[in-house]
């Protein structure tokens, strides 16, 4: 066993702050991925404050300032696209769309899915059957097809609508995960013990069940966020995510197809950003899950 976990033996490692111990356990790929995620989130949040970052919608060639499909230069680090817009700036602002959608989906999934799932897994009976029937029906639709149908029929496509629809559709899988966990937790001794001393059901749900479901749900959220970003990418690639000129990674890849023969870079940069972000989420998520399963095995 790891001596750092042994309270009787405070070692050098145990005295270091927990965050550094946490990081020291990461393999180098995971460290790299976590750093990349921090960079992406930071860039998306502080995009307006980054010094020297171009306006993502400024089309230089219209004003005789720069050309389309430029290569990398000091003014445009990653070059310009076929509308002579700065690719780096569009990637940074595009990260906002991906992250906003992913965060909304995770938030709605964890809050609503987590609550419904924990509730029905805990009380079981008719409520359980009813809620899970609805969940099963929604999951009976292939994700992207359902999403396409809903987004089109809504008619309006701004960030709020896209994020809400994707968020709504991600509630069912979270409900399923939360329910499965709540079911097994409700059979554990500490829940039985709480029942035996006459604790109210609502208190047990919020004090015992939900806090124990949450960690699993958050590990799932990491991997789910990756799926959501891919989904938004596909939607944007089909031209059905947020409306132009707002940039999104999928939209950028789609727009690059026209001049692919001439200039491949406008396709490569957003693709790389998308692939590495998704990979990082998967990698860190997998690592967290492994860590958790090692811990629960040790208990």
């Amino acid at each position: 066993m790891d001596t750092a976990l042994d309270p009787a033996a405070p070692t050098e490692a145990a005295r270091r702050p927990w965050i550094r111990r946490f990081i020291s356990k990461m393999p180098w790929t995971t460290r790299f991925c976590a750093s990349w995620l921090i960079v992406v989130v930071g860039a998306a949040v502080f995009a307006d404050l980054i010094p020297g970052l171009a306006d993502p919608n400024y089309q230089g060639f219209l004003f005789g300032d720069g050309a389309t499909n430029e290569g990398p230069s000091l003014t445009h680090f990653l070059g310009t696209d076929n509308n002579s817009r700065d690719i780096l700036a569009r990637i940074v602002y595009g990260a906002r769309v991906s992250l906003a959608v992913a965060l909304t989906a995770v938030f709605m999934g964890v809050v609503f899915g987590g609550f419904f799932g924990s509730l029905v897994g805990f009380v079981r009976g008719k409520t359980d059957s009813a809620v899970m029937a609805v969940v099963d029906v929604i999951l009976a639709f292939p994700g992207l097809v359902l999403l396409l149908t809903v987004v089109t029929l809504l008619g309006r496509r701004d960030l709020v609508v896209i994020a809400t629809v994707i968020g709504f559709l991600s509630i069912p899988p979270y409900t399923r995960v939360a329910r499965a966990n709540a079911l097994s937790i409700s059979r554990r001794e500490f829940v039985t013990a709480a029942r035996a001393i006459g604790t109210r059901k609502r208190t047990i749900l919020f004090r015992e069940v939900i806090p124990n479901v949450l960690p699993t749900l958050l590990a799932y959220a990491m991997v789910n966020a990756a799926v959501i970003i891919l989904l938004e990418g596909a939607l944007a690639f089909l031209g059905l995510s947020v409306e132009p000129p707002t940039s999104s990674w999928g939209t950028m890849v789609n727009a690059s197809r026209v001049d692919l023969q001439i200039n491949v870079w406008p396709a490569i940069w957003p693709s790389l950003a998308l692939v590495f972000t998704v990979y990082s989420l998967n990698n860190v998520g997998d690592w967290l899950r492994r860590l958790r399963s090692v811990r629960s095995a040790a208990l």
């Binding site: 890849v253 789609n254 690059s256 693709s271 590495f276 998704v278 990979y279 998967n282």
Partner: peptide, 20 residues
């Protein structure tokens, strides 16, 4: 490791790469 990476490559990125 390769599988974890491939899991992060959406169809349209792979497709565009293959076309190119």
């Amino acid at each position: 490791g390769g599988a974890q990476f491939a899991l992060s490559v959406p169809g349209f990125v792979a497709g565009l790469l293959f076309i190119y």
